[in-house]
């Protein structure tokens, strides 16, 4: 049970860092347009504060992730961490006035259903990792 709370709170923190990261990434890209694969693009990118928000999201998610990964098998842990698609979708419709089109809604439903399946796959049976004793 103690481990259950550890995972729940850990994954919530992970989703929060991932959402902050994704939003910052989008702002960083928007403020560095047009996309060019040269030094000028990198200078535009790193000359604005947004990219550092993305770095904070990345670093925060990294340490949360490495702490969780010590015990969690990579597949299901990765799936649980990807519930951020929902939070990021809703935030981007609100923040960037993006259109919510039908294929996106249907695709998101299928993806979330798939993520839920992966979660169930893990709770129904503990699949020992290679090397786990």
């Amino acid at each position: 049970m103690k481990r259950g709370w550890f995972y729940l709170i850990g994954f919530l923190i992970l989703v929060m860092f991932d959402s902050v990261g994704a939003i910052s990434f989008k702002y960083a890209g928007m403020h560095a347009l047009p996309v060019e694969f040269n030094v000028a693009w990198l200078l535009r990118l790193f000359g604005k504060p947004w990219v550092y928000g993305a770095v904070i999201g990345y670093v925060g998610a990294f340490f949360t992730w490495m702490t969780l990964l010590k015990h969690a098998p990579i597949g299901p842990a990765f799936a649980a961490s990807h519930l951020e698609v929902v939070s990021v979708m809703l935030l981007s419709i609100w923040l960037f006035n993006e259109p919510l089109r039908l294929p996106h809604v249907l695709g998101a439903i299928a993806i979330v259903a798939g993520i839920v399946c992966l979660g169930f796959a893990e709770s129904r049976e503990h699949v020992p990792e290679a090397g786990e004793t």
């Binding site: 994704a22 939003i23 989008k26 951020e84 698609v85 990021v88 979708m89 981007s92 419709i93 960037f96 993006e98 259109p99 919510l100 996106h104 695709g107 998101a108 993806i111």
Partner: peptide, 8 residues
């Protein structure tokens, strides 16, 4: 891309 599409 739109962020909502890219994240999916």
């Amino acid at each position: 891309l739109h962020l909502s599409e890219a994240i999916l």
